[in-house]
Write a protein that binds this DNA or RNA. Structure first.
Lengths: 132, 132
DNA sequence: ATAACTGCAAACGGTTTGCAAGTCT
DNA sequence: AGACTTGCAAACCGTTTGCAGTTAT
């Protein structure tokens, strides 16, 4: 599968970045940068917070993580390269991915609004199976 | 039409809050709190920035404004109570509303994910008519 | 060898908060 | 009158940045 969670081309592979990568890879829900930093430190205790910020930005630029619309502090979720959307549980904070999608078609957006869509973001908020 | 842009019940109607309300009402696209503050000051020059923050939070709690997924600083858009989504122009920053929506059905989410949706958020990014 | 990367700590900037004064009901 | 609201300015806190030392290539 092309495009699995990885660093952008041309950047160096360091233990710090790999630690952040592992922490993202094992994440099951949404996380803040600080939380990610804490978890990544289990792999690389000397990891600095600034480096975590810098790495998150790297991953965001390649689509490896994705910012969520948050009430409070900015949160992220791991983001697989396939097209998908997020099911955000408002009870436990967990995030599932789903490939279900039915966004308005490009032709309809063109016809109705003269708008040419490039990307879209669908987050569904509700209650997950466990919290039901 | 019930639920036009308004303050929550029980809070006092002050010139400051009305000024912020007017600034939101006349907004045509996305805005940051600081921008909103500048515009609201045209109606109430003595308006403090902290009050603008407090009022935006009030409006957010009632759905009168809606935070957008931003790269940079947090931005908001005015949000009418009817169901709708946003067409965000990545060129000029303008935001249109659209009633076009085709989110996954509740039954399909239940069946496939055991997820009970309460709300969803669809923002479409692309190029608007004028910027095309 | 050398350009990229990191940790540290300071700087930054947006947001929140405490409080005394003012205002709506 | 009394509770709510405001402006101000300080405090707060998440994020960014400069820089000297370190590391991947």
């Amino acid at each position: 599968m092309a495009g699995e969670l990885a660093l952008p081309d041309g950047v160096r592979s360091t233990t710090q970045r790999l630690a952040v990568l592992r922490a993202v890879a094992e994440s099951t829900g949404s996380f803040t940068v600080a939380e990610l930093h804490d978890r990544a430190r289990r792999f690389e205790p000397r990891l600095g917070l600034a480096t975590t910020y810098r790495t998150v930005e790297l991953l965001r630029s390649t689509g490896g993580v994705h910012p969520l619309l948050g009430e409070g502090r900015p949160t992220y979720v791991r983001c697989r390269p396939e097209h998908h959307h997020h099911l955000v549980c408002t009870s436990c904070g967990g995030v599932e991915e789903t490939e279900l999608c039915a966004a308005p078609s490009e032709s309809e957006l063109q016809r109705r609004h003269g708008f040419r869509p490039a990307a879209h973001e669908l987050d569904i908020y509700g209650t997950c199976r466990r919290c039901a």
